[in-house]
Nucleic acid binder design. Structure first.
Length: 410
RNA sequence: GGAGAGGUUCCCGAGUGGUUAAAGGGAGCAGACUGUAAAUCUGCCGGCAAAGCCUUCGGAGGUUCAAAUCCUCCCCUCUCCA
């Protein structure tokens, strides 16, 4: 049987490992492994996909993923990767997010019979007593050591508050808690978590004289060096209400050529043979690989049907024979009366959500980036009404080359 | 607690009484070129039915015909000292 570690290695998941031979040995047998997720938003986004995929592989190989939602640590704020003090969230906000995230993860992992579990660290962290905590756990942390951690060193210039400084202790405590209660001997996370993971490993060694392990993943940036998952609309969410499966599919298909091979390995479950073949494509042929990446990634997140719809919509909108009727193109409804009267183009663009403001819509159209039924709109205040429909039953607006919006008349 | 520096539009960062919706860079958007890619070039990049008007430079007041810029108080951050 293959060891997950080999899968990770082959697919490019590994950045740092505490000790490879020992981790491999550990993973020869079913193991509980934890990853923490921040409840700072009500949905996970593409940036969290890498850890999620790592758990998918883990579970497929017979191990047990433990997802820790940082409801407790979220109240403190992880300084890693942040240049500024994080906003402190209220308990209610966090609670709400915790349940939303749980739902999303269920798409990727099987939680039946506790094959994977989700827990909120607020359950144990909020019960801690300060003095007891200091005496029993705080004594094992050397401030001198902590200050050498990259995450803290980076903050020495810009400032670091005491509440954030404690984050590392809490995450270490998490690891210890999971070790005690769930026999968890492995923690994974983004490379910015390395220091926190080591702190936990260290704590468990001191308290329990046991060796546990950690793995970190590379922090993904696109080839252009930008953090993944941002578009002009903001983050790319896994929640279909925040980012439609159509947009999700489009996000993947628009990735840089040079990222495709790497992303296929990380974000799909295709066999590596296939990944390597697709990743080796060059020139325009890469588009085929992108289609597969987009389809597979959408399928994992939203299911097969949604992925097919998104693919079909893309084919219709971007293929040779353009057609404008597809189910999964983002749609905006307008009532018939209002439509018959007519609306200036820039207002329609703003209303439908294609543009964030009317000014933006004006600019777009003035610069020649606004289309109705594939016809360029010549002036921003051109009236759009029934006449533009021609034979069609609905209207298709386009912003730039790639963003579409279907207008339905109801 | 003391001394100093600072908080500017998504981010970085200029600006120290009118010519400032605020330089420059990054990100983003559009056009050209393409392959729904990258690179490159060009334009845009607070809002508004818009050659005008309105709102922005940590917050609240004040001086002035005129304030991001000057004064007062407050809040926050950093550096050094305790």
């Amino acid at each position: 049987m293959t060891n997950v570690l080999d899968i990770y290695e082959e697919r490019g998941f590994l950045e740092q490992v505490t000790e490879k031979t020992l981790v491999r040995k550990l993973l020869d047998n079913p193991t509980a492994c934890y990853i923490g997720f921040d409840p700072t938003a009500k949905s996970l986004h593409v940036g969290s996909l890498l850890p999620i995929m790592s758990l998918v592989h883990l579970q497929r190989m017979g191990h047990r993923p433990i997802i820790v939602i940082g409801g407790g640590t979220g109240m403190v704020g992880d300084p890693s990767g942040k240049t500024e003090l994080r906003r402190v969230m209220t308990r209610d906000e966090i609670e709400e997010n915790v349940s939303a995230l749980k739902k999303q993860l269920e798409r990727f992992l099987d939680f039946d019979n506790d094959k994977a579990i989700i827990i909120n660290n607020a359950d144990w962290l909020t019960k801690l007593n300060y003095i007891d905590f200091l005496r029993n756990f705080g004594r094992h942390f050397s401030v001198n050591r902590m200050l050498t951690a990259e995450s803290y060193r980076a903050r020495m210039k810009t400032g670091l508050s005491f509440i954030e400084f404690n984050y590392m202790l809490l995450q270490a405590y998490d690891f210890w808690y999971l070790f005690k209660h769930h026999n968890c001997r492995l923690q994974m996370g983004g490379n910015d978590q390395w220091g926190n993971i080591l702190a936990g490993e260290d704590l468990i060694r001191r308290l329990e004289r046991e060796t546990v392990h950690g793995i970190t993943f590379p922090l993904l940036t696109t080839s252009t060096g930008i953090k993944m998952g941002k578009t002009h609309k903001g983050a790319v969410w896994l929640d279909p209400d925040l980012t439609s499966p159509y947009d999700y599919y489009q996000y993947w298909i628009n990735q840089d050529d040079s990222d495709i091979g790497r992303f296929l390995a990380l974000f799909t479950l295709l066999p590596m043979k296939e990944v390597n073949t697709l990743g080796g494509l060059e020139g325009a042929a890469i588009r085929e690989a992108k289609k597969i990446l987009a389809y597979e990634a959408t399928k994992l997140c939203h299911g097969e049907n949604e992925a097919q719809d998104a693919r079909l919509a893309a084919k219709k909108l971007f293929g040779d024979s353009k057609s404008f009727d597809s189910e999964s193109i983002p749609t905006f409804s307008i009532n018939k009366q209002e439509f018959d009267v007519g609306t200036p183009a820039f207002i329609l663009f703003e209303k439908s959500g294609l543009c964030k403001s009317r000014s933006e819509a004006r600019r777009l159209i003035s610069q020649g980036g606004g289309y109705v039924q594939d016809q360029k709109i010549l002036s921003f205040d051109q009236i759009i009404n029934t006449k533009n429909l021609e034979d069609s039953s609905h209207l298709l607006l386009r912003a730039g080359k790639k963003r579409y919006m279907k207008i339905e008349i109801s």
